[in-house]
Design a binder for these strands. Sequence first.
DNA 1: GGCTGGCACTCGGACGGACAGAGTGCCAGG
DNA 2: CCTGGCACTCTGTCCGTCCGAGTGCCAGCC
Lengths: 338, 338
Amino acid sequence: MLSERRLQVLRAIVQDYVGTEEPVGSKALTERHNLGVSPATVRNDMAALEDEGFIAQPHTSAGRIPTDKGYRLFVDKLAGVKPMTAPERRAIQNFLEGAVDLDDVVARTVRLLAQLTRQVAVVQYPSLTRSTVRHVELLSLAPARVMLVLITDTGRVEQRMVDCPAPFGETSLADLRARLNSRVAGRRFSDVPRLVEDLPEGFDVEDRGTVQAVLSTLLETLVEENEERLMIGGTANLTRFPHDFPLTIRPVLEALEEHVVLLKLLGEAGDSGMTVRIGHENAYEGLNSTSVVSVGYGSGGEAVAKLGVVGPTRMDYPGTMGAVRAVARYVGQILAES
Amino acid sequence: MLSERRLQVLRAIVQDYVGTEEPVGSKALTERHNLGVSPATVRNDMAALEDEGFIAQPHTSAGRIPTDKGYRLFVDKLAGVKPMTAPERRAIQNFLEGAVDLDDVVARTVRLLAQLTRQVAVVQYPSLTRSTVRHVELLSLAPARVMLVLITDTGRVEQRMVDCPAPFGETSLADLRARLNSRVAGRRFSDVPRLVEDLPEGFDVEDRGTVQAVLSTLLETLVEENEERLMIGGTANLTRFPHDFPLTIRPVLEALEEHVVLLKLLGEAGDSGMTVRIGHENAYEGLNSTSVVSVGYGSGGEAVAKLGVVGPTRMDYPGTMGAVRAVARYVGQILAES
DNA sequence: GGCTGGCACTCGGACGGACAGAGTGCCAGG
DNA sequence: CCTGGCACTCTGTCCGTCCGAGTGCCAGCC
């Protein structure tokens, strides 16, 4: 168990290193934080912290930098979440309220997050699987061709073509549309399969094939998780670290283009509350020198998707977490209103 | 007027510089290309080319590198478009044919272009303003609230809410839907305003306000150019030039996030045929050290949108142009089929 | 037992001079 | 008009030196 002062030393190291981006030594520490002890004492503490694996030195006779494990301890025990100031909160709200549709909400959210945190922002579109159906529309495009349009409560629209096994009249189509909506409108996606199960039974035999085709396309649309989409922004912020440059930025850019990877990453994060993955805690290799701060957001109490930022492990955790949390909260509000 | 040999010298300089990324000197030139003359002669030619502003030296006693003007001449007069090989063409076609919907087509196109050119790919979604209406759907979500869904021939779907000045019955709605579609289905967007002009006249006085509201929302959707969307990929390729790094990559990443800027850039490019903008020819400052190769693509003969790549001015123009042209052609085919 | 000042040691980064190599411009001769 | 030769310039690199920051350890003090 580490003594209180050693924890303070670790906190000071993290803070200084995040600020200066340079290894921090014992003397500088005592000067910048009034720990009430001499550099020599701090050196002893540092040696202990190094033994435990919380900090490391890049070379002999250099200052110390935090390890992933050190950041982990910092985030878990030493750092709070820095709340946004009132003007910041107002600015967030104002900016998001100007959005005209779902795409715009997501786009603005990305922009905002990137600006606030000065890092790369990642926002997942409200996921289909957790939201509810607002309306299902069926359009007859040709005698045996129907377009299915699914509108969700979050304003998202998905469309699919359905090839019918047999021609399907306008009246049958209207009938199907009405029955379908009366069953599923306002219901959660996860409930839909159960709700439409016996729907074909109410139709003439010759129409059942088509009804079945429409239903299975609908169900397909609902479960199709690979339709989950992301928006990313603020990649230019990666260049703020001219340090170890191309070496570290390249794999990150590559990872950011692999939306599948990012979605998996966000999916793995805890469902409620904020998740911070530090360095090697990220399963994906390209992100081994970055941290990912993510949180769920949604209209009402329930999370329908996630958002977060990707930045160097050497980031301002309290500030970033504060910004992420605040943005998630306000996006949720906006979605609930619309 | 430059002699034939001087043009060859310029061509050789461009080719070598693109290959090696290092200033090229007279001796190396004569060794790698059999120009049939000695280095001294080449030096004279180089001096002439430098006087004319086609090449420059970074420092005294260094080799020459092409200027923007030099690349311009190279592209206009000296370089052909390198056609794709048959296997490459087959690969392109196969890859694109796997797409399941419009989003997927665009996503695959971006990926493909980025991979083929090893540069940043930019693909504009098929633009609304140049395509035709497949169907307009109206859904009553509440007594005085209608959702307008517009489906285009390229498979794109746009939706908008319409707040009605007065309640609007289901039968009126069906009536409006039918009349609207009979007028605009299959027509070009640009013709729509003219076609619906006198539509309200056929309705009862109390419904006209709503009809008007629906129509103006429709027209708004049609002209709303800021709804033009882009997809971008291959940003990791920017790191292939560890040269002048953060200095040059940062503004490019920033520019790539400004979709408005990119759309403007693509819009300014010639409407037919391939456009190459080199270095300072790009109005946007952040792209002053990059070249943009773009071309229109579309189903049928007509271009509905543009696609292209962004890379360093020092790029393989013939190869890039070949890839861009080939991809545009095949995407057009895919869109026409679906 | 824990804190402190002192001391020797190590290492990286900055500075500066020397050197080699590449490339140029110019000139006289073919 | 082309060519070979020559003097010149500049860059990048290598190497040795030096300085400062930071460490670990130890003996002494509270």
